[in-house]
Design a protein around this nucleic acid. Structure first.
Length: 223
DNA sequence: CTGACGATTCACT
DNA sequence: GTGAATCGTCAGC
């Protein structure tokens, strides 16, 4: 298949917004894998920005030491994780970066998927404006750092902590399927990034990404 | 109320 | 490879 055609949003069918049944499923690891290739969209003040999801991480509820909900921790910040699947969970890390997560599973089961990287599709000028990247004097060609890494992509799409609790079934933030999906052989699973504190759970293969995609964060794989 | 720290990023050695 | 930025959250007193 022509790789370029596969990545062109206009080449495929109209993207269809994912419905509650996608998010409600009990297996957060499966949902994290299934999110690869889907399109994350934000539309704030009439400004649409979107990108194809190329990297995710699953956070597997109360039994997962890496999860904010580990051991049933339930606070004002994490309360949204205990809500319905298909809700945004955005939190501030290091006082600087906003990280966007998708709450999954049914109410009271605090599963979530961290979206770690996107390949930009729509609204790239807006993303450049929001991030301050792409100004004159910089080297030509795509700036892969625009949406590489969870802090960067959240900034590019305008996602802030105030968006925590927003339904992904609404018209501000949603995820769509345009029919494109990675082959199984293009998908890689590794341990999650930045969760060394999680003891044995730090080694779980809960990070998923599309092999070879230049927007994927973290160290490069050995070939 | 206090203090330690983080699901990160970037500049710098 | 190392360290700083910067502040809400959380556990503990």
């Amino acid at each position: 298949m022509d790789e370029r055609a596969a990545r062109e949003p206009a080449a495929g069918p109209e993207p269809v917004k994912l419905i509650a049944a996608f998010y409600d499923r009990p297996g957060v690891v499966t949902v994290a894998r299934d999110l690869l290739g889907k399109i994350l969209v934000t539309e704030f003040d009439g400004q649409r920005t979107s990108g194809r999801i190329v990297e995710t991480e699953a956070y597997n509820g109360v039994g997962d030491r890496a999860s904010h909900a580990w051991s049933g921790r339930r606070t004002r910040r994490t309360e949204v994780m205990y809500g319905f699947g298909g809700t945004a969970y955005v939190y501030l890390i290091y006082g600087i970066h906003h990280l966007f997560n998708v709450v999954t599973n049914k109410k009271d089961v605090p599963h979530a998927v961290l979206v770690r990287a996107l390949e930009p599709l729509e609204g790239i000028p807006v993303m450049l404006q929001r991030t301050g990247k792409g100004r004159a004097g910089e080297k030509p060609g795509p700036d892969y750092s625009l949406t590489r890494g969870p802090g960067n992509l959240s900034r590019a799409l305008g996602l802030l902590t105030l968006h925590t609790g927003v339904s992904l079934l609404g018209d501000q933030i949603w995820i769509a399927d345009d029919g494109w999906r990675p082959r199984r052989s293009e998908m890689v699973a590794t341990p999650r990034i930045g969760v060394d504190y999680a003891g044995p759970d730090a080694a779980l293969p809960y990070r998923f990404f599309i092999k070879g995609n230049p927007y994927v964060s973290g160290p490069k794989l050995k070939t």
